[in-house]
């Protein structure tokens, strides 16, 4: 066991991938000598050289598009998109090309590209640097989307994404990059399947489903709720596509109440999908409607007011109050 931050864990995971797979390479803006704007690739160019840690032109469509070509030639490109809000110049390549290549080739071609995207708010940044666009990608068949919430998952998930034969987007919770935790670099243990949700805290009265940056928030809310005598189960979804509905359903059948929280706007978001599926699967177990906690239907607001936008402990507690009022 080693203690490290999420950023360092991803760095170590990338190092392991580059070491284990000679056809793996990293591509992105400023990922070379600078080590990326969040220093996640720090030191890797010195170790693996400029052919395997590639500083690209500032062109997201070009990054994803050339990554597709490299993967068609048998390489494993791991692309860094600098910030969530800057993925959109590459959106066309991701949704019309990367996601569909295996299907449209009748299974003849595989494009195991990995795309890393730092996402989410709470860092007081300027426009386009705090968004949570995961639902836009989750809606696209052919992609897999995972998001770690702790260093151990971060270390293993980036490697599992690299091992996967399908294209995988790894959404990295940027405001948690400096969160420290224990990493077992010998074995993933219970994190062996990146597409499986984890029950982080057991409870009997309500379930709170979260992922990525909101995991610590949900755990704190559960602690606060315990003081009011409410036993709250917290699930870290970990994978946004596919979603581990079995784990969520099992929990809701036990607790009877479900809150889903994410930073992304609630409308058309992952919470809505979970609410719909759980209503179908566990209708008779539900004591209250599934309640969503998320961002508002507005462009991500300016940094000085983002605290009013982001789901926090109180917003989750308020949602629990509503769930218990039925």
């Amino acid at each position: 066991m080693t203690t490290m931050t999420i950023a360092k864990a991803i760095n170590e995971g990338l190092r392991a991938t580059l070491t284990n797979n000679p056809r793996a390479l990293l591509m992105g803006e400023d990922i070379g000598p600078l080590g990326g704007v969040y220093r996640v690739t720090d030191g890797l160019i010195a170790e693996f050289g400029a052919d395997r840690v590639v500083d690209t032109p500032l062109a997201e469509s070009g990054i994803i598009g050339t990554a597709i070509g490299l993967s068609l030639r048998g390489y494993l490109p791991v692309c860094e998109i600098q910030f969530d809000g800057f993925v959109f110049p590459g959106f066309n390549q991701i949704t019309t090309q990367l996601a569909k290549m295996h299907s449209r080739s009748n299974g003849n071609l595989t494009v195991p590209v990995v795309i890393r995207i730092p996402y989410g708010g709470g860092i007081g940044s300027i426009e386009h640097h705090s968004e949570s666009p995961e639902a836009l990608f989750a809606h696209t068949a052919g992609l897999r989307i995972i998001t770690p919430s702790n260093p151990h998952d971060a270390y293993w998930m980036i490697q599992q994404a690299a091992d996967c034969q399908d294209p995988v987007i790894v959404f990295e919770p940027k405001r948690r990059y400096w969160l420290k935790g224990e990493v077992d670099t010998e074995t993933p243990g219970t994190s062996a399947d990146p597409f499986k949700a984890h029950v982080l805290r057991e409870g009997t009265d309500a379930t709170v489903v979260v992922y990525g940056p909101l995991v610590p928030v949900a755990l704190a809310a559960a602690n606060a709720a315990a003081e009011d005598g409410r036993s709250v189960e917290v699930i870290d979804l970990r994978s946004i596509s596919p979603i581990d509905f079995d784990t969520v359903t099992e929990s809701v059948k036990k607790t009877g109440r479900l809150i889903v929280a994410h930073e992304a706007p609630t409308f058309g978001g992952i919470g809505g999908e979970i609410a719909a599926r759980i209503s179908e699967r566990a209708f008779h177990s539900l004591e209250a409607p599934v309640i969503r906690v998320g961002g508002f239907h507005m462009p991500y607001p300016v940094a000085k007011v983002e605290e009013d936008y982001l789901p926090d402990i109180d917003r989750i507690l308020e949602a629990l109050d509503r769930a218990f009022s039925y």
Partner: peptide, 11 residues
């Protein structure tokens, strides 16, 4: 077109 360039980078 970027697929072609990436493929060429692979070569």
């Amino acid at each position: 077109t970027p697929h072609a360039v990436g493929y060429a980078m692979g070569i």
